Amino acid sequence: MKTSRVLLVEDDPLISKTLSLSLPFAGFSVTLRETFTSGLEAARQQSFDVILLDLNLPDGNGYELCRRIRSTNTKLPILILTAKTDEESAVESLECGADDYIRKPCGVRELSARMLRLISKSDRSILSFGSLRIDSSKFMAWSGEHELNLGKRELLILAKLIERNGDVVTREEILAATDQEAMIYDRTIDSHLSHLRKKLKNIDASETIDSVYGVGYRLRL
Rank of each mutant, 00 (worst) to 15 (best):
F28P: 10
G62R: 05
T18D: 14
E34R: 13
Q45C: 09
R70C: 10
L52A: 11
K75S: 15
E34W: 04
E88L: 14
N73S: 14
L8Y: 00
L40P: 05
E10Y: 01
I51L: 07
L8W: 01
L81N: 03
P58G: 07
S20I: 05
C66G: 14
T18I: 13
T35C: 02
I80A: 11
A42G: 05
T37H: 07
E64P: 01
C66Q: 06
Q46Y: 09
N61T: 03
R44N: 12
A83R: 08
L40S: 08
G27N: 11
R44K: 15
D54F: 04
K75D: 10
T37A: 12
S20E: 14
R70L: 07
A90R: 15
Q46M: 13
F48P: 03
S47T: 07
K75A: 15
R67Y: 02
E34G: 01
S22L: 14
L76Q: 07
D12H: 09
L7Q: 05
G62F: 05
Q46S: 12
F28T: 12
P24G: 12
D86N: 13
K84V: 12
S22Q: 13
I51K: 02
K84M: 13
L32M: 08
A42P: 05
Q46A: 15
V9Q: 00
N73D: 15
R5I: 12
Y63Q: 08
R68D: 12
Q45P: 05
V30W: 05
S71F: 05
L21Q: 07
L76E: 02
I51N: 02
P58R: 03
T85E: 15
T35L: 04
A43H: 04
G62Y: 00
A43S: 12
S71V: 08
S20C: 13
D12A: 14
E34V: 00
L19A: 09
S89V: 14
T18M: 15
S16P: 09
R33V: 00
A90M: 11
F25Q: 09
K17R: 13
L40A: 08
V6A: 06
T31F: 07
L57D: 01
D49A: 08
S47F: 10
P24V: 13
L65I: 02
L40Y: 06
Y63C: 09
G60F: 05
V6F: 07
C66I: 03
